[in-house]
Design a protein around this nucleic acid. Structure first.
Lengths: 208, 208
DNA sequence: TCAATAGTGTCTGTTAGACATTATGGA
DNA sequence: TCCATAATGTCTAACAGACACTATTGA
């Protein structure tokens, strides 16, 4: 009946070489659970969990991640663990003692799988993809992020039409030449406040 | 650093007189926190949280609720609380010492609000609306549930077309006459396994 | 010139929503 | 008969996806 404080674990995600990667604590001895070691902290019971998670992320990265949310609670070993997921822009370097591990290498880990699923589920309601990219990005970059997280191919013209109609990006006057091919215009995330958010059609997409 | 076991709280929802209601523990003294008292239990540290929540729900209702999931963890007073949400068919009677309270009367309560939000967010991927109804229901009943949870009007013909195209209900040979008007055919939930779940279009529906 | 990528215009099939109409009961 | 509700057919505007095409750079 007497237990230690609950722990908070953070699955901090970014883009690395065109794939999703998660920040893992480097361990001197070989990992014994077959998964990655997510950064953790003990959560003081009285403080809001979100605040503790924020502090953990800030101490790791030096600043608050641009997007973060709670995934859920798990009973882990003998204590309770509350998992958070955050995203940081591609190019963010791993802090000392940590490494970016491609999630494809840790798919067996329940926590990472659930963290990535939480990203995918919120992709259409939260600007997650944008915060996985630097402030300036090309529309091809953005499309790749959506394709990566949704795990499906996307139609280029359709993707751009929908993006423009939603007024969530605005063009800059910068262009980027990526070696071969026509240079791409850089855009920034700028969700223009819309008067009425369009109604989604009712969907019945049960697997069961 | 030394704390008691985490608690599990259950927001068990049903339909009552055309509105959403949540199961609250009746308290002899006036509630002091201005909200409802959700059924709770202490979670043994070692057992999976889902199992503890299942047991809480089963002991309350006499059987497992047809649908249930974890909402998240909250730091509550001095301990941690993990909130679950369940749905039971309309007509389920409140167990002894408990009452159905319309959620419109408890909107200020964070936990109930988050539980209902969790229902709405999953409405298109889980058969939640169906489990809020008895096994046999009319399509008008079903549409009312969707309209209630989505908080918007739905177009009747469009709703039925989408429903039929998704193959998630099948007609029975029963009809129900509700006083005045033409009797309605009763349907049952029967999600036929579909070969390929259709791709949803990419949406950008950020409020921000 | 060619290869590669960015960006756009047009067409078509699907579908959500509007509207109208029929069907079938009770009062 | 009238009214209320169920159920369905048709039309239209919106849009996702396919396809083709132009634009602009490096090699």
């Amino acid at each position: 009946m007497v237990r230690s404080d609950p722990r908070i674990a953070l699955a901090c995600c970014t883009l690395l070489d065109g794939t999703l990667a998660v920040l893992a604590t480097r361990r001197p001895l070989a990992a014994t659970d077959g998964g990655v070691a997510l950064p953790r902290t003990d959560a003081p019971g009285r403080k809001p969990l979100d605040a503790s998670a924020e502090r953990l992320a800030s101490e790791l990265l030096g600043e608050s991640p641009p997007w973060m949310t709670q995934v859920g609670a798990f009973s882990e070993a003998s204590a309770l663990e509350v998992l958070y997921v955050a995203v940081v822009p591609s190019g963010t370097s791993a802090p000392a003692g940590h490494d970016w591990i491609p999630v494809s290498q840790v798919r067996a880990t329940t926590r990472v799988t659930r963290a990535v699923a939480a990203l995918r589920e919120r992709l259409d309601r939260e600007p997650i993809a944008f915060h996985l990219l630097p402030p300036r990005f090309t529309l091809s970059d953005l499309q790749q992020v959506y394709a990566l997280l949704l795990e499906r191919k996307l139609h280029k013209a359709s993707f751009r039409r929908t993006l423009m109609a939603a007024h969530v990006v605005e063009p800059t006057d910068e262009w980027r030449s990526e070696g071969r091919g026509r240079p791409a215009q850089l855009f920034r995330y700028a969700a223009r406040r819309r008067r009425g958010i369009p109604h989604r059609a009712v969907r019945f997409e049960f697997r069961d």
